[in-house]
């Protein structure tokens, strides 16, 4: 039998009732993230000033994993500096590869709910879509 399903309550709740899925008013950083093979498509929007993520939101379409992961990510990175956000992103990506420690995963708070994706290679791209897009947005030239 295949892996038991990992659609836990944290994940389904963020999918059905996202906190951060809306059009941000006057964002100054906007980036689209796409998984062409499965059709996940999100647009990440930030108000990013003086190296700090002041506000963030996303819009788009995709599977529950891509949507919930982006929503959880935004809760985590609002108010964070670029360096803090990139550090969280690094932990998240390592968690998905099964390489992060329990202490590190704790820093991800609800993001830890996606830990079991490491057993689902077909869904990794969905889980990291938001984080990958955030990395790109933050690493754009100032």
């Amino acid at each position: 039998m295949a892996e038991r399903t990992f659609y836990n309550e944290v994940l389904t709740d963020h999918n059905l009732h996202p906190d951060n899925k809306y059009q941000l008013k006057d964002p100054n950083r906007v980036k689209e993230g796409v998984n062409p093979s499965c059709g996940d498509d999100i647009i990440l929007q930030l108000k990013y000033n003086d190296g700090i993520i002041e506000e963030a939101s996303f819009v788009g379409e995709g599977c529950a994993i891509s949507q919930a992961s982006a929503d959880i990510m935004i809760n985590l990175v609002i108010g964070k500096t670029k360096e803090e956000a990139l550090k969280l992103s690094d932990i998240f990506l390592r968690m998905i590869k099964g390489e992060a420690s329990d202490e590190e995963i704790e820093e991800l708070e609800e993001g830890g709910a996606l830990k079991d994706i490491s057993h689902m290679p077909a869904r990794v791209k969905c889980a990291v879509l938001g984080w990958r897009t955030l990395d790109e947005i933050l690493n754009e030239d100032e």
């Binding site: 039998m1 295949a2 892996e3 038991r4 399903t5 659609y7 059905l16 093979s37 499965c38 059709g39 995709g62 599977c63 529950a64 994993i65 689902m120 077909a122 869904r123 969905c126």
Partner: peptide, 23 residues
């Protein structure tokens, strides 16, 4: 209704049923 096909296929896979999701 309300569930993305990739989640549908993943849940069915967890029940041991191989189906196709996508276009």
């Amino acid at each position: 209704d309300g569930v993305h096909p990739h989640d549908v296929a993943a849940i069915m896979d967890a029940e041991g049923v191989c189906v196709r999701a996508g276009h």
